[in-house]
């Protein structure tokens, strides 16, 4: 037939925001580089629910999608290494480096291949620091009995130090804080802003850095293979630029965060190095060991993936 234009549907969710800026940028760059021969329609929730985006890719309903590993750990066990608590990731650039290193590992590629998906790039999220009501909690002992809205591995980490993880949907987090259903909520900054939890907060842990979610952007393998060489080149070569745009944009949001804290009178809590070390020993080590054990039992090289994350962190810091 005729050389039809290539049009990809991209499934993301919510509204256009910092979290989706790299996808929008990618669409823009790809169209530019191919003179409009290869375009992407970014759909915000019209094509799938976030938790079914991998299913949609596997079916072939759309060609590109974003999701978070923690939404469904059993769908993508290998990349949940990036969601282990207290990995020690300090900023978004480090988050990009470790994510892309794991994505390039054959075990991760094989894991996602079951969904007919190929990992393209990450959507780096800052650490899920806590906002809380009442007296600031800056010592390990004060986490005992704390009701915290934190899901998955993060919830387990707080549980290890005596916290009580409490199931509340993100949309009810504000309500839950107001009603004392929870004392603290773990979110990235943009979510604290959009779900309004910051408005109820007395304090925010600036350096607890307990962990984050990992949200890759994937493409349908068949669709990727069917691209012409020029189109594939346009796509691959745009990833770094799209990520750079994302980091730049998110950086602005983080600058704004400090002024929001000041404006709302939210105290910035710094936790001492000894306390953090105690926290890691109690919460991070056993959870990581269990994770490695579980992965190894499934035939996934858990230790190797974890070591890869640590080595990449070291290399990234050495390179700066």
């Amino acid at each position: 037939g005729e050389a039809a234009a290539t049009e990809w549907n991209v499934s993301v969710w919510g509204k256009r925001r910092a979290f989706t800026e790299h996808v929008e940028k990618l669409a823009e760059l790809v169209s530019e580089k191919t003179d409009g021969a290869f375009t992407m329609n970014v759909s915000y929730g019209g094509l799938s629910k976030p938790r079914e985006n991998l299913d949609g890719i596997s079916i072939g309903a759309f060609e590109m999608a974003q999701f978070c590993a923690g939404y469904h750990r059993d769908k993508n066990p290998s990349i949940t290494v990036l969601e282990l608590p207290f990995l020690g990731v300090n900023n978004l650039a480090e988050e990009v480096a470790v994510s892309h290193a794991v994505y390039a590992h054959p075990a991760a590629a094989k894991d996602l291949a079951r969904w007919n998906a190929k990992l393209l790039m990450t959507s780096p999220m800052p650490q899920y620091n806590l906002v809380g009501t009442g007296e600031p909690r800056d010592e390990l002992a004060e986490f005992d009995g704390m009701r915290v809205r934190a899901t998955g591995g993060l919830g387990k980490a707080f549980e290890a130090v005596g916290g009580v993880p409490t199931s509340v949907p993100a949309t009810e987090a504000y309500n839950a804080m107001e009603s004392g259903v929870v004392d603290t909520v773990a979110f990235a900054q943009h979510a604290h802003l959009s779900f309004g939890t910051i408005n109820k907060a007395d304090w925010w842990t600036a350096n607890l850095n307990p962990g984050t979610v990992n949200c890759p952007v994937v493409v349908n393998t068949d669709a990727y293979d069917m691209l012409s060489d020029a189109e594939r080149e346009a796509l691959d070569s745009s990833v770094d630029e799209a990520i750079a745009h994302y980091l730049d944009n998110y950086g602005k949001l983080l600058t704004k965060w400090d002024s929001v804290l000041e404006e709302k009178g939210v105290e910035k809590v710094m936790i001492s190095e000894e306390q953090l070390a105690a926290f890691r020993a109690k919460a991070a080590d056993p959870i990581r060991e269990q994770w490695i054990k579980d992965m190894t039992a499934q035939g996934i090289p858990g230790q190797e993936l974890y070591d890869l994350v640590m080595k990449t962190l070291e290399d990234t810091r050495a390179g700066n």
């Binding site: 509340v168 009810e172 309500n175 839950a176 107001e178 009603s179 004392g180 259903v181």
Partner: peptide, 15 residues
């Protein structure tokens, strides 16, 4: 009062 308490903290979530 589980949705909104005019006198203070709500008692829980709507669900």
């Amino acid at each position: 009062f589980f949705v909104y308490n005019p006198f203070g903290e709500a008692w829980g979530t709507p669900t």
